[in-house]
């Protein structure tokens, strides 16, 4: 089920994984004491793969995603994205990398409320200093099925439509890795299906890599592999599981 011929051009050898986590630990320190959110995670995300990350609440899923995307510094360990080691990059270099290589979709608050759908999608291009091509923006919005909502503002869209705008915005820069944290967490099953299909399509058609945190076994079943996280450690994985198998594995984990 893995994509065979990734169309995404890259200087990195095709065999190399899109994203490498090597011995990642993360300790949050606060007045209340230290929390070991991640306790040594090593994992390779193959190019063009769709991986779901599951685990009990507080197991460190969001922390993992944030460290992998360079939003937060791991306490120890190395993250390599598209051949680039994140540690030691300047804020500006990190931003450029994020802009060009990563796309983000979160559970809520993904869009700038002041901008129209069109402007939200075109924003990453503007930030790189490019003039957005109308046709390009429209094409992406057609792709997510929102060709007729170009002029709306986020407040005038349903939750599912907002998520699809967020995906369109992530798609437009053709990133090599998508990071999604519970992208369907606030959606009904119909909207969830649309959003998940779009992510699935990204890996199948364009060879992009998707890392998605979810609580929903049905959503996780869209991925070819589910990685289970427990107490800051990888507890195992399941390939091409059905929702039922995934749910069973989860309840095993939570016991």
């Amino acid at each position: 089920m893995t994509a065979t011929a990734p169309s995404y051009p890259s200087v990195v050898p095709e065999s190399a994984p899109a994203l490498v986590l090597d011995g990642i630990t993360k300790t949050y320190r606060s007045k209340a004491g230290a929390v070991d959110a991640l306790r040594g995670v090593t994992y390779h995300f193959p190019r063009g793969s769709f991986t779901a990350v599951m685990g009990p609440s507080g197991s460190g899923k969001s922390t993992l995603l944030q460290c992998a995307a360079g939003l937060d510094q791991p306490t120890t360990g190395v993250v390599v994205l598209g051949g680039v080691t994140l540690r030691g990059l300047s804020e500006v270099a990190l931003t450029k990398l994020r802009r060009e290589e990563m796309g983000f979709v979160f559970q809520a608050y993904n869009l700038l409320p002041s901008l129209t759908v069109y402007d939200n999608v075109a924003l990453p291009l503007r930030l790189t200093g490019k003039r957005p091509q109308r046709a390009e923006v429209h094409a992406v919005l057609e792709q997510v099925g929102l060709g007729d909502k170009v002029k709306r503002r986020p407040a005038e869209l349903s939750g599912g439509q907002q998520q699809r705008v967020a995906i369109a915005r992530a798609l437009i820069t053709r990133p090599s890795v998508f990071f999604a944290d519970e992208p369907t967490g606030a959606l009904d099953s119909n909207s969830s299906r649309q959003v998940l299909s779009l992510l699935r399509e990204a890996t199948d058609r364009a060879g992009q890599t998707v890392v998605m945190v979810t609580h929903d076994p049905v959503a996780a079943a869209y991925a070819e592999r589910v990685v289970f996280l427990s107490d800051g450690l990888i507890a195992g994985h399941l390939d091409r599981g059905t929702p039922g198998q995934i749910a069973a594995a989860m309840s095993d984990l939570e016991r």
Partner: peptide
């Protein structure tokens, strides 16, 4: 803060 964070997330530099 959140809105500015979102801008940074999708690729705005601190300078921008």
């Amino acid at each position: 803060r959140q809105e500015l964070g979102l801008l940074r997330l999708i690729g705005a530099t601190p300078r921008q």
